[in-house]
Structure formats: structure tokens, C-alpha cells
């Protein structure tokens, strides 16, 4: 029983962190129609900055700088590289491919710097645990849940209550109609990239924190799991990304917790589980969990 509760809490923490990354995918997709394959290396960039800065600036200072710097890097990537190209229809596909190139460059450089090391990020939680009734939970996991929840709630508030949020949602529905209302598309989308970059840097903290051993050059591959979370949520739906992330986090934790009973499916099934869930969901609902919102009459 406590095993199950453990798995559920672990899955919740994992899902919360995936949600930070998946929300970034969704925000970028809504604003620019681009699937950002550079997201994993942006996340790694943020984590690397915290790793090298926390001795001098303290954890909080390093985190603040990393979130800001990753946001700026993502925004610059959009403004200076992606938006330079031809803006016509089909541009998003070209830009998606450009992000693959950016990912390779960024990842190569960061891997060279990190090498085979495990970098501590100097987070305040360490390996401390807290007892919650029958279960003990790593503080880092509680922090992941709380920080993600607060961040995600803030992002949803931005969507709902700010001019930027309204602009983003309008442009996500109909780019040309939004342009006709005087929405500055390029500014809206650059801000979306910045937000996604900042969220990725934040996610890096919890991916490198206990029980993970630290930041590795492969930490960015986490984006590969948040991606199916975004897809199964409907790709353009922030609520869907949240639901998809929790679903995938829980699945992964439960599968990992029952690995021995599921040995039929092979040793590394926990890694494949996100994709298996995605395929199952898409078989039943091809548009994703929340992909049909805004049923339009023509």
C-alpha cells in the first residue's frame, strides 16, 4: 500500500516537472506553430548555468540568472533565427527543422563542457525527506510539486488575464484575424518562447535534484518524454499538456514501481511507457485529450 502511495507521489512529482516542459512546447506551438526540438538543450543550458553559478551566487541567485538567461536565449533564437525566414504559409515547418539544427549545436557544446560529469545544482533540499502519514517523501519531490503548481497556475493566469495571453490565444486560433486586430505577432511569439525557455530552466532544477544524482549531459532528453505529454494533451491546449504530463508521470512511476511484475514487457519499459500511453490515447482520441476545444461552425 505504501508502495503504491510512494509511486503515486513520485509520479505526481515527475508529472509536475514534465508539465513545466510540456507547457513550454504548447505555448511555443500555439504562438508560432513550431515544434521546438531545441527544448531539451535549452533545459540543459539552464541547468548548466545553475551548476556553474550556484557557488558564487547561491542557489536562488543562480536559479534566477539561469531562468532569465534561458528565457533570453529562447527569445533570441526565435527573434534572430526563426523569424528571419520567409513568413508565408509553411514557414512553421521550416522553423521546426531549424530548431533541430539549433539543438544539435547547443547540445554538442554543452556536452563538451559537461563531459561525463554529474554536476550538483546546489539545491537546498539535498536528500532530506519528510514523513507524510504512512509515507516518506523526498523534499525535492514536494518542492517539485509545489513549485510546478505555482508556476503553472501563474502561466494560466497570464493566459487568462493579460493582453499578452489574449493575444496568444487569439493568434493560436487564427493568425490572420489576430493580425487584423493589431496583435503584434512577432512580439507575442517571442515572449512565448521566452516563457517556455524560463520554464525549461526551472524544470532542470528538479530533474537534477534528488533522487537523480545531478545534472548530466543527457538530462535534456527529458524533453523527449514531455513531448508525448503535449501531443496527447492536444498540442495546442495548455490544460491538455498538464493532464498529459500527469498521466505520463504517473504511468512512468507506476510502471517503474512494478517493473518486476511487468517483466514480460521488457526491462526498460518505464522509458517507453510515455510513448505507449501516447499511442493508446491517440488511437482512441486522434486529436488528443483536449484537442477539439473550440468546435467551430463554418
Amino acid at each position: 500500500m505504501t508502495g503504491l502511495l510512494d509511486d503515486l507521489l513520485g509520479g505526481l512529482a515527475l508529472g509536475a516537472v514534465y508539465a513545466l516542459v510540456a507547457l513550454g512546447f504548447v505555448v511555443i506551438f500555439k504562438a508560432s506553430g513550431v515544434l521546438s526540438f531545441a527544448h531539451g538543450s535549452l533545459l540543459l543550458f539552464g541547468g548548466y548555468l545553475i551548476a556553474v553559478l550556484h557557488d558564487d551566487l547561491g542557489f536562488a541567485g543562480a536559479l534566477a540568472v539561469a531562468v532569465l538567461a534561458t528565457a533570453l536565449l529562447a527569445g533570441a533564437l526565435d527573434r534572430l533565427l526563426l523569424q528571419r525566414g520567409d513568413p508565408g504559409p509553411g514557414a512553421a515547418h521550416v522553423q521546426t527543422i531549424v530548431t533541430i539544427g539549433v539543438d544539435i549545436v547547443l547540445l554538442t557544446e554543452l556536452s563538451r563542457r559537461i563531459g561525463g560529469d554529474l554536476l550538483p545544482l546546489g539545491d537546498p533540499w539535498g536528500d532530506a525527506v519528510t514523513g507524510l502519514g504512512p509515507v516518506t517523501v523526498a523534499d525535492s519531490r514536494l518542492a517539485a510539486i509545489v513549485v510546478s503548481a505555482v508556476s503553472i497556475a501563474s502561466v494560466f493566469a497570464l493566459f487568462r488575464y493579460t493582453r499578452w495571453g489574449l493575444s496568444l490565444r487569439a493568434a493560436g486560433e487564427d493568425v490572420e484575424a489576430a493580425a487584423l486586430m493589431g496583435v503584434r505577432l512577432s512580439r507575442v511569439r517571442t515572449l512565448a518562447w521566452c516563457l517556455a525557455g524560463g520554464l525549461a530552466a526551472l524544470a532542470a532544477v528538479f530533474l537534477a535534484a534528488f533522487p537523480a544524482p545531478g545534472l548530466e549531459r543527457t538530462t535534456g532528453q527529458i524533453a523527449l518524454k514531455a513531448f508525448p505529454a503535449a501531443v496527447l494533451g492536444g498540442m495546442a491546449s495548455p490544460v491538455g499538456a498538464l493532464a498529459g504530463s500527469l498521466l505520463i508521470g504517473l504511468t512512468e512511476a507506476l510502471v517503474a514501481g512494478h517493473q518486476s511484475e511487468l517483466s514480460l514487457l521488457g526491462e526498460g519499459f518505464a522509458d517507453v511507457a510515455p510513448y505507449a500511453v501516447m499511442v493508446l490515447v491517440l488511437l482512441v482520441r486522434p486529436t488528443g485529450l483536449f484537442g477539439t476545444r473550440g468546435a467551430a461552425r463554418v
Binding site: R163, L166, S167, R169, A170, E173, D174, A177, A178, M181, G182, V183, R293, G294, A295, A296, R297
Partner: peptide, 15 residues
């Protein structure tokens, strides 16, 4: 904007 409310559509006109 089909997925936005009538009110949000109107607000978007002032953006």
C-alpha cells in the same frame, strides 16, 4: 476566434 468567448473576442478587438 471560435474557442474564445464572445467577450474575449470583443476584447481582442482592442489589442
Amino acid at each position: 476566434f471560435a474557442g474564445l468567448t464572445v467577450d474575449e473576442n470583443l476584447r481582442s478587438g482592442g489589442l
